[in-house]
Computed example of a mutant assay.
Amino acid sequence: MKTITTMYFSPTGASRKIANGIAGGIAGTGTFEQKTIDLTKPQAREKTYEFRSNDILVIGYPVYGGRVPAVLQNVLCGLKGTATPAVLAAVYGNRDYEDALLEGQDLLAEGGFTVLAAGAFIGEHSYSAKVGAGRPDAEDLQAAEGLGIKAAEKISAGDYLEVAVKGNRPYKDPMPDMPFTPKITETCTGCGLCAENCPMQVISRENPTQINTGCILCSACVKLCPQQAKYWDAEPILKIKQMLETKFVERKEPEIFI
Rank of each mutant, 00 (worst) to 15 (best):
E250T: 09
I122Y: 04
E253C: 07
M7F: 04
R95F: 07
L217T: 01
I237S: 07
S204V: 01
I18G: 04
Q201W: 14
H125D: 08
R169T: 14
L193V: 11
P176S: 06
Y49G: 02
E98D: 13
G192N: 09
S156V: 14
S15N: 02
G214I: 12
L238I: 11
K230T: 11
L102G: 03
Q34D: 12
D177F: 12
I149Y: 10
N168H: 15
K2N: 13
T5W: 04
E196P: 06
G30Q: 10
N94I: 08
V165G: 00
N212P: 09
S126G: 05
E46Y: 08
G81L: 02
T40E: 05
T82G: 10
T185Q: 15
Q242T: 13
A70W: 09
E153W: 07
T31V: 06
V222R: 03
K247L: 09
A229Q: 08
Q201F: 15
L39S: 07
L72S: 09
K154V: 01
D55S: 00
T12E: 06
N212H: 14
T40P: 04
G146Y: 08
E162T: 10
I59T: 05
I37Q: 06
Y127W: 11
M175P: 13
V58R: 05
G93Q: 07
A109G: 05
D137V: 05
L238Q: 13
I18L: 01
Y127P: 07
T187F: 07
L39R: 04
F32N: 08
I56E: 01
E186A: 11
L238P: 15
A138V: 10
P85E: 02
A138S: 11
M243H: 13
A89L: 02
A152P: 04
A138R: 13
F248V: 12
I59W: 11
M243T: 13
F32Q: 07
S204N: 10
A27W: 12
L39M: 05
T185H: 11
Q105K: 15
G192K: 06
P179N: 14
Y160F: 15
K241W: 03
S10K: 00
G132L: 00
E162Y: 06
A220N: 05
R135G: 03
K150L: 11
P42G: 00
T209E: 09
G104H: 02
L102T: 02
C194Y: 04
L79M: 01
I256L: 12
K223V: 08
T246K: 14
T187A: 14
Y160P: 12
M7Y: 05
K41D: 12
I37E: 05
P182H: 02
M7P: 05
E110F: 12
L79W: 04
G123T: 14
C194P: 09
K183A: 14
A234M: 13
A90P: 03
N168Q: 15
G132M: 02
N74Y: 06
D106C: 07
I256P: 10
A120R: 10
S10C: 00
R45C: 00
C77G: 15
G25V: 03
T187H: 12
D177L: 10
S128N: 10
